[in-house]
Design a binder for these strands. Structure first.
Lengths: 241, 241
DNA sequence: CGCCGCTTTTGAGAGAGGTCAAAGCATAAG
DNA sequence: CTTATGCTTTGACCTCTCTCAAAAGCGGCG
């Protein structure tokens, strides 16, 4: 469930840094811009730091800002009137968030870890994008990829069992996150949030993970740590329970 | 389940018609092109007619073609190794299908009704799009909308009950399709396909619809016909069972 | 170092939806 | 008009996942 930690007046501006030193400049949508254009875009926006739990945008709100993720992990979520939540996306460094060219933000965006964003007023961003085809092309590429991945996830939500869901999730995390020296991955999501990604309950997530541990497929280290012991077995579980 | 009706050698070319008489020219992605550019794009592509059940693209295939839908309804689907299918999208006249700017088609595309397409080789289309910012902008807009709608559907798949799913589906059909004089909508999907859209079984779809009929919320007319008798009640069912 | 709060795990029981099987009906074919 | 075919509905039963509840464990703090 989204924590109602007010993001307004929009977190601390942690200004200063320019694109020259930006760690995501070669992966974010601004990668194809020349130095001058990138600087111009940079002047439109500003750096902002978020604490874990802070919400940047609310579902249904006017779409006033868009942003590049510089660092950290965030969730995109929607919910029903009676409070059931579904996480519809998890975004990482260099991903783009917000709804350009549209009046409404279709889902909430909340930081799962501390995070830093490169935030743009939507109107100014839209205008800049209209004048810069490379940027728009890059955004299109990214949106098409997002759509493909989102549709893949629909197969998981609609047709996979709890066991397959958890295995698929763990493999996905293993691909996206870097393990430490012991091969342990630090999950950016709580059990409840994992449940909200997979469309199951927290108890079912817990039971499946405990069972996989008992089978020696994974290892659980503290609340957030997982070691993927047998990736082959996990892949088998992800496909057919 | 996708019928394995071979689409190769790619249906009948029903050529002849130009953009001048095209019924979707003001709604498809070519709407913002000037006449000369639209003609140029038209020369890249060709008109193709499909019969219900024919598949245009297969999941995982090389992405060789993209298309505008001129007429008819098609489904986008993915499936697990063991044959469970999830319909990830239903497309209508003036929608765009296929995967531009990418090597792989991420899901199959199959005609649900007889349909007509304006089909482009992907390479040529990509090249044309790169030279025409208006087209790319329009495609971006459409892709962003698709992504928003797809993510909304994830809430349904992950968090709604069978009853809510069926009600939501019927309302969606009511919005998209025009009813005849008696208020009856002709569904373009079979019960099995509805089940594959909603991530439930055909029996559950059938039971829910029968019950809604018993309650007087809808009326069933033959195999494909539905009359939405009490839209308000249906909206209530879609939100909270 | 030990207590406290919150997340996670575990347990027991219930129920929504799935599975398997058979009967009903449209629609098409003869 | 009659029969054949396949989709849809209905029934009985089962099981996976949810619910409600309580115990356990991690991590923060005095």
């Amino acid at each position: 469930m989204a924590q109602k930690t007010a993001a307004a007046p929009m977190a601390r501006n942690c200004g200063g840094q320019s694109c020259d030193t930006c760690v995501v400049r070669d992966h974010a949508i601004c990668a194809d811009l020349n130095d001058a254009d990138r600087e111009a875009l940079s002047r439109i926006g500003r750096r902002v730091a978020l604490h874990a739990g802070q919400t940047v945008m609310w579902e249904g709100d006017d779409s006033t800002v868009v942003a590049n993720v510089i660092e950290g992990t965030l969730k995109l979520a929607t919910s029903t009137g009676d409070g059931r939540e579904q996480i519809v996306g998890v975004v990482y460094a260099s991903d783009f968030i917000g709804r350009p060219f549209g009046a409404r933000t279709p889902h909430s965006v909340t930081a799962l870890t501390d995070a830093r964003l490169c935030l743009f007023p939507r109107g100014a961003f839209d205008g800049f994008a209209m004048r810069h085809g490379e940027l728009q092309h890059r955004l299109l590429q990214r949106t098409l990829d997002d759509l493909d991945r989102t549709r893949d996830w629909m197969l998981l939500l609609g047709r996979k069992t709890a066991r397959e869901k958890v295995a698929t999730f763990l493999l996905d995390m293993g691909r996206r996150l870097r393990a430490d020296a012991d091969g342990v991955i630090e999950l950016p999501l709580s059990r409840q949030q994992i449940a909200d990604v997979l469309g199951i309950t927290i108890e079912t997530v817990s039971r499946q993970m405990t069972e996989m541990k008992r089978e020696g497929v994974i290892d659980l280290v503290g609340r957030r740590g997982v070691r993927l012991v047998d990736i082959g077995a996990l892949e088998a579980l992800a496909e057919a329970g």
